[in-house]
């Protein structure tokens, strides 16, 4: 049985979307919403003779982190690569909408109460983005999710948790970038274009998608931490991710806004400096970037534990 306590020490990487959802919030507090028993399956996959799943590959629900209602969205990579179609997209949109309505209803009460119970959104990404079998619906859903992230700005923190095997790519890579806080393990990856597509576009000499070390150096948690894209690098247990989420739930909204990479003119100006830096450097490998930022021994960083790594890594700072 997947009890909360046994889940805590489980590998995030190896866990299912539902185990992650249950384990990311306080013991026994998770209620799944539109779970498998509701049988909201994709209306589009059967026509193509493609297997369906009762939750369409996305677990949504609500739990608690202390007094904070935590709206959880957890993608399942083993079902069609965690791809987002009409139903899964609607579950994401519905959950974000719910977070906003919980925020608004708490505003009706005292300010202190509203602050103490400020909701938080946790999104565990495991996806390549749009589900091609229902591509147009998936694409339109992505835009709705982005729209809601903007609605939630300065109200409800949205935390991206990226510790899955597939990581977060494609259109969902934009979504993750647009969240407030990004938490990653070194075993997961975040980007836009997957390694196979880069290899196809640039040739194998430029990028060998079968080179696992290269793939992780380019989009893995450690690199994203150095680039400032990942705010917190954590270990690979569900407890590691949950504790980090709990920490964010207690931070002030001003502090959280300050962790964003994008979402304001100031943030865009800082990113433009990074792009200019890269244009001058023309890195052939992410370690060229690490060195240019003052990390003299990239190999040492690659081998370091995530705790040690966070102490010694020099990060991009505009």
């Amino acid at each position: 049985m997947s009890t909360w306590h046994t889940l805590q020490e489980r590998s995030f990487l190896e866990s299912s979307a539902r185990q992650r959802a249950i384990g990311l919030v306080d013991a026994g507090s998770f209620s799944e919403l539109v779970g498998p028993l509701e049988r909201f399956v994709s209306p589009h996959l059967p026509i193509l003779g493609e297997a369906i799943e009762f939750d369409d590959g996305i677990v949504t629900g609500v739990g608690l982190l202390g007094k904070h209602p935590a709206i959880v969205i957890s993608q399942e990579g083993r079902f069609i690569g965690g791809s987002v179609g009409e139903v899964g997209g609607a579950k994401m949109v519905g959950a974000l909408k719910l977070a906003l309505s919980i925020f608004e209803s708490l505003q009706q009460g005292s300010a202190a109460e509203a602050e103490a119970r400020r909701p938080i959104v946790l999104i565990s990404f495991e996806t390549g983005g749009v589900r091609l079998h229902e591509a147009n619906a998936g694409l339109l859903a992505h835009a709705e999710v982005m729209d809601l992230l903007q609605d939630l700005r300065r109200k409800v923190p949205v935390v991206a948790l990226i510790g899955s095997k597939i990581g977060c790519f494609g259109g969902m890579g934009f979504i993750a970038a647009a969240t407030d806080v990004i938490v990653m393990s070194e075993f997961s990856r975040l980007g836009l274009t997957g390694p196979e597509v880069i290899e196809q576009e640039m040739g194998r000499n430029e990028f060998d998608a079968s080179d696992r070390a290269l793939v992780f150096r380019t989009t893995g948690g450690k690199h994203k931490f150095i680039m400032g894209d990942c705010n917190f690098l954590v270990g690979d247990t569900l407890a590691d991710f949950r504790r980090q989420a709990q920490h964010v739930a207690q931070m002030s909204m001003i502090e959280i806004e300050g962790m964003r990479r994008i979402g304001s003119r100031g943030a865009v100006e800082r990113q433009m400096k990074l792009v200019a830096f890269a244009a001058d450097l023309r890195p052939r490998d992410s370690t060229d970037m690490w060195k240019a930022l003052g990390n003299k021994e990239p190999q040492q960083l690659i081998a370091a534990s995530e705790e040690e790594f966070q102490k010694i890594a020099v990060r991009w700072n505009a």
Binding site: G173, F174, A176, A177, L190, G191, L192, T193, I198, T218, T219, H223, K224, M227, D229, R261, I262, Q271, L274, V275, A278, P283, D285, S286, M289
Partner: peptide
């Protein structure tokens, strides 16, 4: 693009 973060 991936090293710098095209997604951003």
């Amino acid at each position: 693009e991936e090293i710098v973060g095209m997604n951003k």
